[in-house]
């Protein structure tokens, strides 16, 4: 349960990060909050030979609002975002989700971008990014590109990020304050990864439902002109359409049941606060 031998590089500027990534190969990893990576190193599930600590790069700190988007750079810890004054106004759904990401003891170190890069299918932040139409700003020494959340994730712990790229920031469109939002999840214990999580955004009779923990990638479905009486059937159809699988935490049937129940709860709550 100890990390393998590796070089530790402490970066102080974005240029430091870019030059190390450009010169080193696929065995280089960014070290952000370490709340997923360090556990993987201890278990030798990852064996990189170089770690680049990005948490001392001043350029990557501080949440801002630019061009109608809330911008969260790579060195912003989850606890810092949760404490940011503007969160509940600009991103009410995300504000509801933050307390469910791990424990106070992991949010204090883990970063927002690190969770997006890690791409765990049960993680709250990828679900939030997809449900809220967020985007990922990637950068390498050669280029900068912006990828929509829906295109960023490609599977369980897989993304379209290249080896020489890092996530400079993630951006969420600022809420217009008119939509109702709700979030719920079920896990064995508060703070554990969710077995199933559901997030809903309602505008009038249009509802978007985001579901985490069931597929390799968080899933969204838009329901237009949804009547309250039609919700159970719509959710039942959705639950069966998802590729629910059984694992050590829960079987497929239970996951479908959670999609139906949590889905109905969050849709109901979102519709209620939209009006």
């Amino acid at each position: 349960m100890k990390p393998p031998p590796l070089d530790y590089i402490r970066a102080f500027t974005t240029q430091d990060i870019l030059s190390v990534l450009a010169n080193a190969g696929s065995d280089t990893r960014i070290l952000a909050g370490g709340q997923s990576l360090m556990a993987m190193l201890n278990m030798r599930l990852a064996q990189p030979s170089i770690l680049i600590d990005i948490m001392h790069v001043g350029e990557l700190t501080g949440v801002t609002i630019e061009h109608g988007k809330t911008v969260i750079p790579a060195a912003v810890r989850q606890a810092e975002l949760a404490e940011w004054q503007g969160l509940s106004k600009t991103l009410p759904l995300l504000a509801q989700m933050m307390p469910w990401i791990g424990h106070a003891q992991t949010r204090s170190r883990g970063t927002v971008c690190g969770s997006i890069a890690h791409a765990d299918p049960s993680a709250e932040l990828p679900l939030a990014l997809i449900t809220l139409d967020g985007e990922v700003a990637l950068r390498s020494r050669k280029r900068r590109r912006v990828v929509q959340a829906a295109d960023f994730f490609s599977g369980t712990m897989l993304t379209c990020k290249e080896d020489d790229e890092f996530i400079e920031a993630v951006r969420f469109p600022v809420s217009d304050g008119k939509a109702g939002t709700a979030f719920r999840e079920i896990g064995r214990r508060k703070g554990d990864f969710a077995i199933v999580s559901c997030a809903a955004i309602a505008r009038g009779k249009s509802v978007r439902l985001g579901v985490g923990g069931v597929n390799d990638i968080p899933f969204i479905r838009d329901f237009d002109g949804l009547e309250v009486s039609g919700i159970p059937d719509a959710l039942n159809e959705l639950a069966w359409s998802l590729d629910a699988r059984g694992d050590l935490h829960a079987d497929a049937r239970y996951r479908r049941e959670l999609v139906r129940n949590l889905g109905a709860q969050v849709i109901g709550e979102a519709l209620q606060c939209a009006t």
Partner: peptide
């Protein structure tokens, strides 16, 4: 546990809670 789950190693770094087992001494 040395993977962040049990909490036995919890300390504070710069005023915030941290798992010492998920932190390198160099950090």
């Amino acid at each position: 546990c040395e993977h962040g789950v049990c909490g036995a190693c919890t300390i504070r770094i710069d005023g915030r809670l941290a798992r010492a087992c998920l932190t390198l001494a160099a950090q």
